[in-house]
Amino acid sequence: MDFGPYLFLASLEGAVTAAVLALTAAGLSLVFGIMRVVNVAHGEFFMLGAVIAWWVASLAGGHPAVGFVLALVIAPLIVAAIAALADFLVLKRVQYDPERTIVATIGLLYIIQQTVLMTYGPEARPVEAPFNHRIYFPWFGYSTYKFFVIGAAIALLLGLWLVMTRTRLGIVLRATQLDRETALAFAIPVERVYALTFGLGAGLAALGAVLVVPIQQAHYLMGGDPLLLSFIVVIIGGLGSLAGTVVAAVLIGMSDGIISVFFSPTLAKIIATLAVALVLVFRPQGLFGKAAR
């Protein structure tokens, strides 16, 4: 193949990565924006979404689309419920202290990961895609399911944006983000809002995982990369800014796809982690964020 088709293929792969990453990182960004805590267990909620999707799909039987659609509804709900429970049992009790929350969520990370290892096992298992047509370009064929992933992610993010800007729930969330104390004074049940936010953030990660699991198999260690990439995206995009997160996800996802076609993925990761550390050191408000208030 010539260089052109290569680049085309790389950008398609990059767009799929970007779509899933945008969903996952939006969850992390939402939690950071509203609750002011960093959730290190975010990648494990992603993994949990994929594992539950496999479980639902293998129980459902019949046409693969039935299992997939069921998984798309059930997996995020279960994951959100688990996250809300974790918020109630753990985060609330450490009063959302930023540093203690990080230590506690590291603990959660290992609890979730190792519980999945004990129950689901160390194998990687696939979920069948709901449909499996291929579009034939002059140089290669490409699965239409991957286009569906991109479309679904865009639709979900639009939905999230509408909820945040156009509904009562969105106002409550934004009020809590702006000023916790004042929100409390205006009778907003901040504790319930926090549990909801934590659940919503984990649910978004699980949604991304369900979308990606027909392409990439479910495995108990699959949460590491999404966590790292989401961190990078949220930091580059400016902590807590949803629009910045989406822009950064597209940027990172596309460049990750393109770079890893041409260079060693390890080298790409080294450059990315160093870059994000240096962004945090020299421009803590993120590349697109406003300076801290």
């Binding site: 230590v103 506690a104 603990g107 979730i112």
Partner: peptide, 15 residues
Amino acid sequence: AYMLLAGAALVLLTL
């Protein structure tokens, strides 16, 4: 899955 123990210890200690 021995790291489960480490995770549980971290959560319980912070709490």
